[in-house]
Design a protein around this nucleic acid. Structure first.
Length: 336
DNA sequence: TTTGTTGGTGGGATTGCTGG
DNA sequence: CCAGCAATCCCACCAACAAA
């Protein structure tokens, strides 16, 4: 420690220890061609000995840039978003960025606060999975920063923004079709609060029913939060309404998890007495008992694709809007 | 007493420059 | 090839002083 105990070790300390100037230290840290190998080794050894840690915020102060990307998701309690995050982080890390994660729990107030805080941090950009009910104004604010950003999952009907989403309608269409092909006719759609994504998925459900000429009277829907608890309660509700229910198409996997728990509790074997399908294909889906039939959109790959979109936007700010839509795939396991 | 103005300082790294 | 100086980034914070 010596002369500098209690303070941070700075480039200046490294410089005097190695017997060079701070300018040289800076160049060594950037692995500049201008510095001889001998000097580089000397400086690096001093860095090692003093335990010097590069101060990125000082560099940021000087250069007006940051290597932190704000990633804001609306429901971190859903493992789906954790997998998406892993995909994002993996891709951004390759290009030297770090991720600043925030969870809004679907609260617009928290989203506003988090966005403000990201801005205060001076992040290099933002990737946002908007809260339910996000207003246009919030996005216009974001746009006015002139920082690269992409929207994920919900586009909010915003033109001119980069967007990474899924073919929702096709996904639930595939799940519903699977049940219809198995001969089920008394079907229900379970979960989801009014939103663009919910509407698209519901539309896919209806489209399949129409194709198989299932009468309006034969199907049900029950709307609510995309949670395990709602799936659990929701299935009870549906079975009270329609004891002869044959299949449930769920808004997402965790709703399906809840529904399966409820079915088992009520003595209806999932996949035998009642069909259940999810949406997302989170990892836990395959280890459920019985393994969940679901729609895979590869959350990890989706996250990587969204990050790629962000990187491209950052590299080319004036480029026209880009959209990535992940294609859903039906993954047949045991529950449908 | 409250409120406003001005100027200086610290916090570390980056970069252009001169000169040996 | 490199030392070393100087300017620079932004802003919170403080002191000193002035005006209302």
């Amino acid at each position: 420690m010596g002369a500098h105990s209690g303070r941070h070790v700075t480039m200046h300390d490294v410089a005097s220890s190695a017997g060079v100037s701070v300018s040289t230290v800076s160049l060594v840290l950037q692995d500049s061609q201008l510095i001889s190998l001998a000097t580089k080794t000397r400086v690096r050894r001093a860095v090692e000995e003093l335990g010097y840690v590069y101060n990125r915020s000082a560099a940021q102060l000087r250069r007006h840039d940051s290597n932190a990307v704000g990633v804001i998701v609306n429901d971190l309690a859903n493992p789906f978003f954790v997998e998406v995050l892993a995909g994002i982080e993996g891709r951004l890390m390759q290009d030297g960025f770090v991720v600043l994660v925030a969870n809004t729990d679907n609260s617009c107030e928290r989203q506003d606060a988090v966005l403000r805080s990201m801005r205060e941090q001076g992040v290099a950009g933002v990737m946002l999975a908007p809260s339910q009910g996000t207003r246009r104004q919030a996005l216009n604010d974001l746009r006015s920063w002139r920082t690269p950003f992409v929207l994920m999952v919900r586009s909010l009907g915003m033109g001119g923004c980069d967007f990474a989403g899924f073919e929702n309608e096709m996904g639930s269409y595939l799940a519903t079709q699977r049940m219809l092909q198995a001969g089920h006719r008394k079907l229900a759609y379970l979960g989801g609060l009014p939103s663009e994504v919910r509407n698209q998925r519901y539309r896919g459900f209806l489209k399949a029913l129409r194709q198989y000429e299932v009468s309006r009277a034969d199907h049900l829907e029950h709307w609510g939060a995309a949670t395990r608890q709602f799936g659990f309660d929701g299935l009870h509700w549906l079975l009270r309404r329609q004891p002869g229910l044959e299949g449930v198409v769920c808004y997402n996997d965790i709703v399906a998890f809840g529904a399966i728990a409820a079915a088992s509790r009520l003595g209806r074997r999932p996949g035998v007495d009642i069909a259940v399908a999810g949406f997302d294909d989170i990892r836990a889906a395959q280890h459920l008992n019985p393994p969940l039939t679901t729609i895979s959109i590869d959350p990890h790959g989706f996250g990587a694709a969204a990050a790629q979109l962000w990187l491209q936007r950052r590299a080319a700010p004036e480029q026209a809007q880009r959209v990535h839509l992940s294609l859903p795939k039906l993954v047949v396991r045991r529950t449908a």
